[in-house]
């Protein structure tokens, strides 16, 4: 494991140097070879890209799936390169990131119940996080150590983060701080697409069933805070776009018991995710098999 992390660190350093010396074009060129290297390992492809590609492109044969795997890896690398370039070397004068729904978010925040931003590992999610400082209240990011490390490594280095981190891999998973932040009218951002441990809710996604952490829905139920489903996509080499894909207001789920509440909100979230991967199929960056056999209820 240490060797693999060392190799990864060397790889990242090479990319940083390439970016500095040759700009984004140079880094994209290098990325081609890295992406080709990754698709030459069939065993890893079966674990990392095929589970998603089989569902998103069910009629694609093996050769097309291989090409799509290349596109996925390349697209992931491009998003990271663009994020790093803009954050570390780019001019901040350009509208590299557009946020057309920002005023809608501010309206939701003004309702005073706090706001949960439910995001996912899609597009340049690291870049989206670095742009949350534009909101008028304190933004708290519920995340674990690995995600914080990625942000600091790729995006923000020694700069002060534009949000407060609430660690979810500690005692009680950062829940006390999260509910307190919401009660103070603040924003809490949560990645909703990966269940690591603890309670989950299952929802249908791309013809199968995936597990989602129940945390955002439980926080919404307890605090009355609305959930804004927020995803970022790379539009072209000049721009990312942060957009609201759905807003889940607690009153829409009034009268439901807790489990029904969780299930209903989870289904709305995965519908937004499905719409996203329909529009941007090569910006889904969960490189593992997240599907499980038919579970339909929240587990204790």
């Amino acid at each position: 494991m240490d060797m693999s992390k060392n190799v990864q660190s060397v790889g990242i350093s090479i990319f940083f140097i390439t970016l500095r010396l040759f700009g984004r074009q140079g880094a994209y060129f290098l990325l081609c070879f890295v992406a080709i290297f990754y698709i030459l390992t069939p065993r890893l492809l079966k674990k990392r890209t095929f589970p998603y590609l089989k569902r998103r492109f069910p009629h694609a044969g093996p050769l097309k799936r291989l090409c799509y795997s290349f596109r996925l890896y390349y697209s992931f690398g491009v998003c990271v390169i663009d994020t790093v370039w803009q954050s570390r070397f780019g001019s901040r004068e350009h509208a590299f990131c557009i946020f057309p729904d920002r005023s809608q978010l501010i309206e939701l925040i003004r309702q005073g119940k706090g706001l949960i931003l439910l995001t996912a590992h899609v597009g340049g999610w690291q870049f989206a996080m670095s742009n949350l400082g534009v909101l008028p209240v304190t933004v708290n990011a519920l995340m674990h150590q690995d995600e914080e490390d990625i942000l600091r490594r790729y995006v923000l280095s020694s700069e002060e983060l534009p949000f407060r981190i609430i660690r979810n891999d500690v005692y009680l998973g950062g829940m006390i701080e999260s509910i307190t932040a919401l009660a103070s009218g603040e924003v809490v951002t949560i990645m909703g697409d990966r269940h690591i441990s603890g309670r989950y809710v299952s929802a249908p996604f791309l013809g199968g069933s995936i597990r989602l952490p129940v945390t955002p829905f439980a926080l919404s139920a307890a605090s009355g805070a609305p959930i804004a489903v927020l995803f970022i996509n790379r539009q072209d080499r000049r721009q990312f776009c942060i957009k609201i894909w759905d807003v889940l207001m607690p009153f829409e789920f009034k009268g439901m018991d807790r489990q029904e509440f969780f299930n209903a909100q989870a289904i709305r979230y995965v519908r937004a995710l499905e719409a996203y991967v329909h529009n941007f199929p090569f910006q889904w960056f969960n490189f593992f098999d997240c599907w499980v056999e038919g579970e339909v209820s929240c587990r204790r």
């Binding site: 500690v170 005692y171 009680l172 998973g173 950062g174 829940m175 006390i176 701080e177 999260s178 509910i179 307190t180 009660a183 603890g198 309670r199 129940v214 945390t215 439980a218 926080l219 307890a222 605090s223």
Partner: peptide, 24 residues
Amino acid sequence: LDSLDAVELVVLVKKYFGVQIKDM
């Protein structure tokens, strides 16, 4: 009881006793 129950309990303590638990 787990962390999700902790969220509920914090809210209920505020509701029934008017006392807020602010942080960890």
